Computed example of a mutant assay.
Amino acid sequence: MKNLFSLFVILFLLNCSSKNSDETIEQEPIIENTYFPSVDSNTWDKVSLSYLNWNENQQQPLLDFLEDKNTKGFIMLYKGKIVIEEYFSNHTSTSNWYWASAGKTLTSTVSGIAQDENLLNVNNKVSDYLGTGWTSVSLIKENLITCKNLLTMTSGLDDSFGDDVSPNNLIYKADAATRWAYHNVYVKLQDIVAKASNTSWKNYFNTKLSDKIGMNGTWINLGSLSIYWSNTRSMARFGLLISNNGKWENTQIISENFIKEATNTSQNINNAYGYLWWLNGKENHLLPNSQTIFNGKLIPNAPLDMYCALGKNDQKIYIVPSKDLVIVRMGESANDSNFALSNFDNELWEKINNLIQ
């Protein structure tokens, strides 16, 4: 009888162990590899705050802050999976909104793809592709300007003549590579890609980038500028591609080497600027419409390794390699109208830190 009782106890314990094992299997699996949403459908896997052990009590304060600051769309990705996706003010997951200067990073990326395909070389002078006379400066000075100068905002052209990038508005200010200034002349890279690829900018962009990762946006011409509009998920898709060093699942869309160059200091004047990407964690930085060197990080509350796309009136893509995060924000200006960086960045990162720490 004693042996029978012992056998019963053993079987009971084994059954409990089996149940516990089954319960473990039913939990969310450990995210080892980066997830990529389908290119052909709108499905996108999610991961819970509790699984990530984030502070769930801080989610609503973050969302309240975003709504109060005129946000339209907000997404947080962890290793590619959606942690938070929220829309405000009648904006939806299918609504399009402008990227403004955050879209500069699209131009940088497509220029890199064209270089990967040996259609251009960023070290070559712009006039190799557009011909001479694309500016109003002397031929000697014009021929100093390379594609890399356009990528790094070091063309030396006068930035005080507004958005128009016709030759009459492209005036000499300094030799190329000697002065950093935020200037819309970067859009000439789109003309360069079109010339080099013997197709239109929009067609090359769609074929080589947008279609391959499932973006839904469109380029809209405003004067001499072409502004990208898309839904918030398309912005997140692009951020995910860049965060994975230019690779989408098993396909290398743009070379890892170019991504590394683009997301690190690109010249010796503004440490916080790559190839149209902004970089955090540097000792000092310059800002649009200013030649003042500001000491300290670009966004003090953000992680040191964070880099970002920043657009007018607070369009944002934040990428944080150390935390496997991609964060996007679309909407109206949070406070006052701005070119790229604003106090909103630092305030938003305070809320994000409260959530993820």
Rank of each mutant, 00 (worst) to 15 (best):
L189D: 01
S197A: 14
S160T: 10
I84T: 03
I113Q: 01
T109H: 11
L189P: 03
Y129A: 09
T132G: 13
E85P: 06
D128Q: 08
K173T: 07
S136P: 05
F88L: 10
S197R: 12
A181D: 01
W99D: 00
V83R: 01
G133V: 07
E142H: 03
A100Q: 07
G133A: 11
D164R: 14
D191T: 11
E85L: 08
S127K: 09
T105M: 12
A196T: 03
T107W: 04
T92I: 12
G73M: 05
E67A: 10
F74G: 04
L157Q: 02
D175A: 13
T178A: 12
C147D: 01
D116N: 09
S155H: 00
T199D: 08
Y129N: 05
T94V: 13
N169L: 05
G80Y: 04
K104Q: 15
K188G: 03
V137E: 00
D68Q: 15
K195V: 13
Y172N: 04
T178F: 13
W201G: 00
V165K: 01
S166M: 11
T152L: 02
D116Q: 08
V185F: 04
N96Y: 13
T146G: 07
Y78N: 06
T154P: 05
S89P: 03
E117H: 12
W97N: 09
Y182M: 14
N96I: 10
S138W: 09
S101P: 12
D159P: 09
L62W: 08
E86C: 13
L119E: 06
P167D: 11
S136G: 13
Y78R: 05
S160V: 09
D164S: 10
I82M: 09
N123Y: 15
D164V: 07
T107V: 14
S101N: 13
